[in-house]
Amino acid sequence: MADIAKLERIASQVRRDIIRQTSSAESGHPGGSLGCTDYLVALYFEIMDHDPKFNMEAEGEDVFFLSNGHISPLWYSVLARSGYFPIEELATFRQINSRLQGHPATHEGLPGIRVASGSLGQGVSVAIGMALSKKLNGDDKLVFALTGDGEQQEGQIWEAALAAAHLKVDNLIVACDRNGQQIDGPTKEVMSLGDLSAKWAAFGWHVIELPKGNDMKSIVKTIEEAKKHTGKGKPIMIMLDTEMGYGVDFMQGTHKWHGKAPNAEQTADALSQLEETLGDY
């Protein structure tokens, strides 16, 4: 049984890391990072079988790809707190000569990153390729990926949706962060996505709803259920309803903190709402 309280304590520290990274970099994307924190903490600290010693090919390991690369401060915190690289390195986020680039990259050799992302719409395709390589290698571990809902406006996403179903990539669990926000405003005002669940189902994916995407217990239970549907001929899509900015009251439920860092006063306010559970870097 998952220790939900422990996972929630990790999530609180990860949220502090997100605020502190974006604050000291005076840039970055706190909103989506805070919203997806619980999902990524569940993956890395409960669900996935992975090795922080990091091997690019990930033979015999579960793998995660982040398609919406702008929520990098979340991924960096989760990777550091999992042991992929020193936690203190989070202080270099977006600074010159850092391995923690504004958007995730392999170029500087940061352990845990397997492909660059940031230019949107590409991560699901890469995850499909990795899942196909696992099948060719006779490796029964799983491939996970996270994509944003704004990102669903990219055409390549739907090429990937077709291909994964056609090729029966059933060792793949993608989550779509349906927070309903993108840089210019609510998705329904910028470019309506319609019924995303119905669309993915129509493309041939097994779609699972996760309406409480910031509730750790619900997240763990849903991913465990998703795993039970792997190996049955269909790729799996978890429709992950999160609240952008979750955990910091003034950042919650608005697109305004999509790509804006908090100032000193806002940082203090945000940190006062998030318990320091594992020690700040």
Binding site: F65, V124, S125, V126, I128, M130, S133, A160, L162
Partner: peptide, 21 residues
């Protein structure tokens, strides 16, 4: 891997296959 008329996805899948060795 027949990729259909979806060149963008084909390049992404190739990147993923290369990641897996």
């Amino acid at each position: 891997i027949q990729s259909g008329i979806s060149e963008a996805n084909m390049m992404g899948m190739a990147a993923g296959l290369a990641t897996g060795g």
